[in-house]
Amino acid sequence: MGDTSEAPPAGRRPRRFSANALLDGFFFIYAGIAAVWLAWLILEQSFDWGWFGLVFFVAFWLVLAYLVLPRLHRILTTIYVPDYFIGRARTSDGLLGDPVNLAFDGDEVQLHAAMRAAGWTRADDVTVASSWRIVASTVTGRSYDEAPVSPLFLFGRQQDFAYQQEVEGNPAKRHHVRFWRTPDGWLLPGGRRVGWLAAGTFDRAVGFSLFTLQITHKIDADIDVERDHIVATVLGANPQATVDVLDDFSTGYHSRNGGGDSISTDGGLPVLDVSEVPLAAIDEARPGGAS
């Protein structure tokens, strides 16, 4: 066994079968089962140490919420959640995430120009540095308006980028919208071609996720308010942008997001066309758009 046997040179046809993938699958599931056992052993400890047991109880919750439940969800959702487009993004644990409620046409640079002109701030990627800044800004109370958003997946890919707007003086609340480029030639159900799909929701508070017990943002149930806010800001700041609403596109896609928050929508999918937005708007937006 060596690196060379594992890694066929790029360009070779992908193999149908890989013992390595099966082995990985076994380890993936075995680790999940072992983690359940570990959580149980830690919980047992919390009974043995008196008041000090509280520490073990917190450790138990950490293991359960951040290791065990995500892994179990990952294993189970691989089996039961379809991997094709169903109008919903998925969380990194495979759970159904925010609903896709916006579509865009236009180049990436035009999209950036339009969003920036509309007073939106691009979110940083999740890195060690940005994570540290979140902690620091939470402790010191300073604002961090480029704070990263959690990864959500569509077409098996994390969002390409995300934009957000802070709510004055409240780190628990924010507007945010994630963007995914659609695969080449991909059509929406019903046959319409769009360049980008987006999911916009409003974080209203911080709370516990229903499914993983992790601390997370809770989103506002009426996702149409946020959708219309995004459309209104983009149209307001970009006279060249146009909108075309696909009525009742996702009437059936409601219920809950990945954190267990209920969501409801009238089902309209606005398709914003920003392909006529002049790129000069990027420079114009910088002084005025940084509100």
Partner: peptide, 23 residues
């Protein structure tokens, strides 16, 4: 298996397996 016996090494083993088997 308690903290006084083998819980630490077992926990390390399980965490190693969880981390390295992740996607």
């Amino acid at each position: 298996i308690t903290l006084r016996t083998t819980l630490v090494t077992l926990a390390l083993d399980i965490l190693v397996l969880l981390a390295l088997s992740s996607r």
